[in-house]
Amino acid sequence: MYSVIKSLVASHSTFNLTTFTSYFDQIRVDRNATVGQIYEYWYTTGGYPSILVENNGPSSRLQQLSRPLWPLKMTSTLSIPQFVFSESIVFASESAPLLVNLNFTSFMRVNYDSLTWTAIFKYMFEEPELFSAVGRAQLVSDFCYFYANDGVENGVILKEAVVDMVYSKPEFFELCDWNLYWCHSRSDQSLFSQIVRSLALRFSSATFESSSAFGCKNGMAARNMNQFCEKIFGRKCI
């Protein structure tokens, strides 16, 4: 692969897609597909892939949620094919659950069954340093995305735990509110609740001038506003 890239760069200052992919047409990922074909598909197909991983005791199932199906390069905690082309595939996973695309090695979103999500975030809360910064951000962002799109069973309960974890450990989530964007984008509150929440945010902004009060929504401003919201709505505002 490296020699092909060197040859391409050495012989062309500019190139179109056909020229680019032709250099990779002799490199096969399996008997039916070449690297060139995969590059072309990813370049010409809009959107991005998303998958669901379900761990059910002795087996795990990986299912593509996107249409059309994508050729997906996989990294995982178990021994699975490097590339996956089918809609659904089942693996034996007696010793450990199947986790894929850790550290965002490929551009895709990954959803898990609720028990696996619970186990992931329990472990992350207890041992956050064992996850890379990219890994922590990716898992939180993926969970929030699927939660916002009703893709996680018991999502509301899990969402509260994830938000609390991120806000309680801001040193491990530098872009905490960016990672939590999808968790906050879905509103289950009434219009009245949203108006009061907005007023509470403005009050907090006017009352606390120090930027540290708003650090990862963990400063005094956030704590005071959440106390206010819990008394009125029985839940936190942020």
Rank of each mutant, 00 (worst) to 15 (best):
E127S: 12
V156C: 07
C144F: 08
V152M: 01
A133M: 06
V134Q: 01
E153W: 02
D177F: 15
S168M: 04
Y167C: 14
W178Y: 13
E171D: 07
Y167N: 14
P170L: 04
N154E: 13
V163Q: 04
C144K: 10
A148V: 05
M124T: 09
E127L: 02
K159I: 00
M165G: 01
N149L: 13
G151S: 08
E153K: 14
N149Q: 10
S132C: 10
V140S: 06
P128W: 11
N179Y: 06
Q138H: 07
N149M: 11
E126M: 12
E126I: 06
Q138L: 14
L139T: 02
G151W: 05
L175K: 08
I157P: 04
A137S: 15
R136T: 03
V162E: 03
V152C: 02
V140P: 01
F121S: 15
C144W: 07
A137N: 07
S168Q: 06
A137E: 11
S132R: 02
A137T: 13
L130D: 12
L130F: 11
N149P: 05
G151K: 09
M124Q: 10
E174D: 09
F173I: 02
F131A: 11
G135Q: 01
F173L: 00
V163Y: 02
K122W: 06
Y147S: 07
P128F: 10
P170I: 01
E171T: 05
F125T: 10
N179L: 00
Y145Q: 04
V152G: 01
Y123E: 13
F173G: 03
D142M: 14
A161H: 03
Q138A: 15
S168P: 00
F121C: 15
G155D: 03
C144T: 08
F131R: 03
S168H: 01
F143R: 13
Y167S: 12
V162T: 07
A161I: 02
D164V: 08
K169P: 00
S132K: 05
E171Q: 12
W178F: 15
Y123Q: 12
L130G: 06
I157D: 09
C176I: 00
C144N: 09
Y147L: 06
F143G: 10
L130M: 11
L175V: 00
E160F: 04
E129S: 15
M165Q: 01
V166K: 01
N179A: 11
E174Q: 08
A137G: 15
I157E: 11
